Structures are given as structure tokens and as C-alpha cells.
Computed example of a mutant assay.
Amino acid sequence: MFTSRILFSFLAIGAVSVAASPAPIIAKRADVSDILTVVSTLNSTTATILPQIDALVASNSANEDSITPLITDLASALGTATTSLASLQGADTSTGGSADDVAAAIAPVVAGIATSLSGLETAVPTLTSLLSGLGLDTSLNQVLSGLETLLAGVLNLVATLLVDVAGLLRSLAFGLTLASLGL
């Protein structure tokens, strides 16, 4: 009888603890529009940074001191996009757009970064080591990898759109980005 009371007590405690446990959280899969929102935010952020770099080049006032904060901001924007993409739980490609839409949205961002930074090559002889030291290639590659994780095959589409930019990426020593894109 004493044993049955102990067993009953354990079963009762177990039932109470199971009943008190929260239901498992089921993450909603992101749709493509969620991914496009992240890319759009990245585009908006880079659209404020890249013109500043271009203005420094145009005014012949670009130097390591003047561009370092802008490149740091650029790396930060890419890091924020990477974090946002990582928070999405897969992608439901049946809603909110397509992989083509994502490729069309990210390609101009990558091209803009490559174009603006390549304008610095003459003004800042230490540009490639500065970019490497600030991890810009790594940051850009992480964004692209995040997109590929969510939408398998999207990097093939992006690469097709960036064939003309491959030379700029190569001159900036963006080896990781080029490798991810297969360029």
C-alpha cells in the first residue's frame, strides 16, 4: 500500500509537470516576401553608404581614414542582413515571390558594392588589405550563403546576373564571394 502511494505520487507529479509544460513551438516557415524584405532593407542601407563612398572618390578625398567608417558600416549592414536571414525558418517558395525575384533584388546590391569599392582602388592603395581586415568579403559571402540556405539554387541565378561584375570582385580579392557564386 505504501509503495502504491509513492507510485501514485510520482505519477501525479509527472502528470502535473507534463500538463504544465508549454506546447512545442512550431516555427512558421518564411515565405519569399520575408526574404525580399531583408534584401530590401539591405539595399536601403547600402543606398545610403555607397553614394558617400562614390562622393569621396569623385572629390579625390578618399583615403583609408575617410573610407574605413563607411566600409565598417557596410560590413555591419551585411551582418544585420545575415542575422535576419538566419532567423527565418526555411522558405515557402509557393508564396510571396520566387528565387528569380530574390536574385533580381540581391544582384544590384552586390554590383553596387563592387562598383563603389572598385572606385577606391586607385585612391587607397591598401584597399584589398583594408577590406580583408574588415571582413567585407566574408560578410557578403554570409549573406549570399544565407540566401542559398533559404532558397536552394538562388546563387546560380545571382551568378548569371553578376557575370559582368566578376572582374570587379576579383580585383577586390573577394574570393569567397566569387567561389559561392561559381564565378
Rank of each mutant, 00 (worst) to 15 (best):
I67D: 05
D54M: 06
V158Q: 01
L140M: 15
L85F: 06
A62K: 02
L157P: 00
L130N: 09
A75K: 14
T82N: 14
G79A: 03
R170M: 05
A159C: 13
A12N: 03
S33Y: 02
G167E: 02
T41K: 08
S17G: 02
G182L: 06
E148R: 04
L56D: 02
V165H: 03
V143I: 10
T80P: 02
G133E: 03
S44I: 04
S76K: 12
S145V: 14
G112I: 01
R29N: 06
A91V: 14
S180Q: 15
A23S: 08
A159S: 15
F2P: 06
L85R: 11
T48A: 10
A173C: 08
A77K: 10
G112M: 09
I67G: 07
E64T: 14
V109M: 06
L130V: 09
T41A: 11
A15G: 10
I53W: 00
L134V: 08
G96F: 13
N43L: 09
A62S: 08
D164R: 12
I71Q: 06
A104G: 09
S118Y: 00
I25A: 13
I13L: 13
L134A: 04
R5Q: 10
V163I: 11
S87G: 14
T80A: 14
L178I: 07
L172C: 05
T160C: 00
V109D: 08
T149W: 02
T95G: 01
T3P: 04
V165D: 14
P69M: 08
L136W: 07
S61P: 00
L127E: 08
A166G: 12
L178P: 05
D92Q: 06
G112F: 06
